[in-house]
Design a protein around this nucleic acid. Sequence first.
DNA 1: CTCGATTTTGAGAGTTACTTTCATTTCATG
DNA 2: CATGAAATGAAAGTAACTCTCAAAATCGAG
Lengths: 212, 212
Amino acid sequence: MTFMTAARTSTPADRPRPGLRERKKIKTREAIRTATYELIEEQGYDATTIDQIAERAEVSPSTVFRYFPTKEDIVLTDEYDPLIMEELRARPAEEPWTESVRYVMRRAVQLGVDEDATVSRLRTRLMVEVPAVRSRMMESMSVTGRMLCQAVAERTGRDPDSLEVRVYAMSLIGGLMETSLYWAENGHREDLADLIDRTLDVLEHGLPRENP
Amino acid sequence: MTFMTAARTSTPADRPRPGLRERKKIKTREAIRTATYELIEEQGYDATTIDQIAERAEVSPSTVFRYFPTKEDIVLTDEYDPLIMEELRARPAEEPWTESVRYVMRRAVQLGVDEDATVSRLRTRLMVEVPAVRSRMMESMSVTGRMLCQAVAERTGRDPDSLEVRVYAMSLIGGLMETSLYWAENGHREDLADLIDRTLDVLEHGLPRENP
DNA sequence: CTCGATTTTGAGAGTTACTTTCATTTCATG
DNA sequence: CATGAAATGAAAGTAACTCTCAAAATCGAG
């Protein structure tokens, strides 16, 4: 769900003490990411090289690649999928599936925007403007899609690998993806939660009768 | 619609005489493509370099890039979208929209498989196996999506840029994409036309009641 | 056919993302 | 503190893609 949420930037108060090594690792990761965001804001995505990122983050270029396999990943790495999955599982079993989806998606959006609206917008903007970023994001869609398959299967007792479940999941993801593109293309003016609602309406009931 | 059809390989008998220059260009294009297919069959996608392709196609590396902007494009360049668009427009206006889609998609698949089943399968296989190819293919999805928006808008008198139309188009594309992935992952055993039918059923009516 | 304009091609050098290897440093643990 | 494991940096290498410019092929008109 990279396409609608900010990345989780810190480990609030998870486990007791992750050890110095772990903490340093997280710090480095964050340093690289914020350096990248800054540089992109300053000079744009393409003009920003890995070397510049490394320099500003005060690590070596090789370290950058050790943390992120590709440049796009620095912007896009997503740690929310598991959260969404959890929330989806936590919904009451009697709740209609479409309701659960609606609830969880709205919540995911809210989380992302709350945490850091600037990053959220930068990301979706890059998604519209930089083909490589968009590609990478779509790539992550399939992963989210598989996860959704799993969730649908658990909830409704279907085979997660069946064509039907997979098609359902993918069309959902595709639709939501288009929603965030739409949001960004229109300058983030409209309320994303509303857009999500309208999107789910289309997916559930098809196109509405009229469109003035 | 790259993801389900082969590329149009020749200009059957279009216009009277395109001139030597044009004909040579088409030939070069084809040479590059078949060289690429061969090399990939022999050694796999990643192991195949542009230089090798250039050598076998008997052109210079720069020429390869002049014809195709990226390596993935050599495999994936799609010339079917306009055809699909045409066919969609040619359907009678009274026909329900979903019927038109069903008819045209099945036809597109048939065309692709008829023309060259081997290439059709190689493509979908690469789509499953090579991330870069899958990305590039997804990238082309958005283009096809915009086109579909246009078609939906024309047929039903809606705004092609409205959220609803865009979401509808994208979920359709996403679903079909997943269908070809499914087809390839299962070794191309099932009949693609049947899969398409089941896909459209899901998109039109949601997940079926039960799934034994 | 020939000449000049236009287009296509090739050669080569350059940029940059990404990989790989290996020695060095840094941290955890007994 | 000593020993082992993990993180880091330096450096060289690969391959996709870009750019430039000169040579060659094609076309159109006289």
